[in-house]
């Protein structure tokens, strides 16, 4: 490591606290109560975050927060473009760009009622057989409407797909118009496939909005593949921007961010560092850096908590000790507290 010692020219500040609780639920209730106290003292929810080593560690807290009516957003879960309905729509755009994209073909063919793997394979073979016209420099050009017009004698269910691709391939259509055509075709599929299709439709509306910003489909696809937009509505119910909310986040997703007050929960040996990591020195050191990243997110208040009675199913052990990274640090660095 490069030796360094962080310092500030500003003076003052209270000691970070180490809070032990008898069990997980007490930890959750402590965090809830402390958050309400901080709010009383004038710290808005936006300036408070609860951080944890692994996403599942916040489940119990989420329930307590909901009970106490504290709105929160959780980071570190699924991403918008990884949701299956958005992936479906993207697949149509991808075959328009690259008709040899067999992965996307399989996806959109299998969405059709009455099409199984065998039919899909036949269709794909047919597509691969037809060459896309080559331009003079040897590069394959984008398929034109003419290319799509070759496919005209399929059964009705499959033919409908080719018809919409033909429509959408018209050269004068931008990404937004193409997407609009596709969404009209896709909507009955969405309704038939997902019970929560109304929620998912919100995602697709958001997707339609994103496409408006683009002139070319390939630029849109590249951005989606390389830099996915934020969370889907299905995965996180984020309150409107005018509402205040608390942040729950994995430490990995909190990198680079800062809050007035930070809670690090489950600073428990076996959870942080994880059971898996302790066999390797290198991995333990990475866990230590994670703890360092977590602590340095806090501007004014830092609360580190751990429950003392956690049964670990995998090993059969009961976890009771605070994380090795904060154990035995001395009260001049970390003030110990017990919750009763």
């Amino acid at each position: 490591m490069y030796y360094k010692e962080l310092y500030t020219r500003r003076s003052g500040g209270s000691l970070p606290q180490l809070i032990s609780t008898e069990n997980e639920n007490m930890q959750s209730r402590y965090v809830v109560q402390k958050i309400l106290e901080l709010r009383e003292q004038g710290v808005p929810l936006e300036e408070i975050a609860v951080l944890f080593r692994s996403s599942f560690l916040s489940f119990d807290l989420e329930i307590e927060l909901t009970k106490a009516n504290i709105p929160f957003v959780k980071f570190g879960g699924y991403k918008f473009v990884e949701t299956s309905h958005v992936k479906d729509v993207v697949a149509y755009l991808r075959v328009l760009e690259n008709p040899r994209d067999v992965v996307s073909w399989n996806r959109i063919l299998l969405l059709i009622d009455g099409v199984g793997p065998r039919t899909a394979e036949k269709v794909v073979d047919d597509i691969l057989k037809r060459r896309v016209s080559l331009s003079s420099d040897g590069r394959e050009s984008l398929p034109t409407t003419k290319f799509w017009m070759q496919f005209n004698d399929y059964a009705e269910n499959v033919q409908k797909l080719f018809d919409v691709l033909k429509q959408a391939s018209l050269a004068n259509l931008g990404p937004a118009e193409k997407t609009f055509q596709i969404l009209q075709y896709y909507e009955p599929i969405l309704r038939a496939r997902y019970d929560d299709h109304q929620k998912r439709k919100k995602d697709l509306e958001m997707f339609q909005n994103i496409t408006e910003r683009y002139k070319e489909v390939d630029a849109l696809l590249t951005d989606l593949a390389l830099e996915p937009p934020n969370e889907s509505v299905v995965d996180v119910e984020s309150p409107g921007p005018e509402e205040e909310f608390l942040t729950l986040s994995t430490i990995h997703s909190a990198k680079g961010l800062e809050w007035n007050s930070v809670f690090i929960i489950y600073a428990l040996e076996g959870r942080f560092p994880t059971m898996r990591s302790v066999a390797s020195d290198e991995e333990v050191e990475e866990e230590r850096r994670l703890m360092y990243v977590a602590c340095t997110r806090a501007k004014a208040n830092l609360f580190i908590t751990y429950p003392m009675n956690v049964y670990d199913r995998e090993s059969g052990l009961i976890l009771t000790k605070p994380s090795r990274f904060i154990q035995g640090l001395g009260e001049h660095l970390l003030e110990p507290w017990v919750v009763e």
């Binding site: 500030t8 500040g13 000691l15 230590r288 602590c295 830092l302």
Partner: peptide
Amino acid sequence: STQPILNLANEIL
């Protein structure tokens, strides 16, 4: 951050 938070972070490293 305040110095007490930095002291803790420095020590952990």
